[in-house]
C-alpha cells in the first residue's frame, strides 16, 4: 500500500474532480472541479520522477554528478501548470459569456444551446 501511495492518491483526486463535475450546479463550480481533476496529474508525474534521497536538479550550489530526481517530469509538470492557467482563463470567459447570454449559471439549464 505505502509503496504505491501517491498513485492511489492521484486516482482519488481524479475521481473527486470527476465527481465534482458530475454533481455541479454552477458552471464556475465545474471549472474549479476541473482544475482539481487536473492536479491529479501533478501527483502522478511527481511520483514517477521521485527518488528517495535524490537532490533537486538545480546545480547552482551542488556539483553535477550527484544523484538527483528526474528533471524531465518536472519540466512536464511546469508545462502542465501553465496549460491549466490558460485553460481556466478561456473556460471562465465562456462561463461569463454563457451567463450573459442565457442568464443562468447552471449546467443543466444550458439547453438553449442545443443545435
Amino acid at each position: 500500500m505505502l509503496a504505491h501511495y501517491p498513485y492511489y492518491i492521484a486516482a482519488w483526486i481524479f475521481l473527486c474532480g470527476l465527481y465534482g463535475i458530475v454533481r455541479s450546479r454552477h458552471l464556475v463550480h465545474t471549472v474549479i472541479s476541473l482544475t482539481i481533476l487536473q492536479t491529479s496529474t501533478y501527483v502522478l508525474l511527481l511520483a514517477i520522477g521521485f527518488r528517495k534521497g535524490g537532490y533537486a536538479p538545480i546545480f547552482a550550489d551542488i556539483h553535477p554528478g550527484v544523484v538527483t530526481v528526474d528533471p524531465i517530469v518536472q519540466a512536464l509538470m511546469l508545462t502542465d501548470v501553465v496549460v491549466e492557467a490558460t485553460v481556466v482563463a478561456l473556460l471562465l470567459a465562456m462561463v461569463v459569456k454563457a451567463h450573459e447570454k442565457g442568464g443562468t449559471t447552471s449546467p443543466d439549464d444550458l439547453r438553449y444551446m442545443r443545435g
Binding site: H4, Y7, A47, I48, P64, T68, D70, P71
Partner: peptide, 21 residues
C-alpha cells in the same frame, strides 16, 4: 494496475539521469 508499478521512491528511467548529468 498501479500495484504493479515500481515503488514510487525508486526512480528507474535513464533519461532523467542522463540529462541531469
Amino acid at each position: 494496475g498501479a500495484g504493479n508499478m515500481p515503488p514510487w521512491t525508486q526512480y528507474r528511467g535513464p533519461y532523467g539521469d542522463v540529462i541531469a548529468g
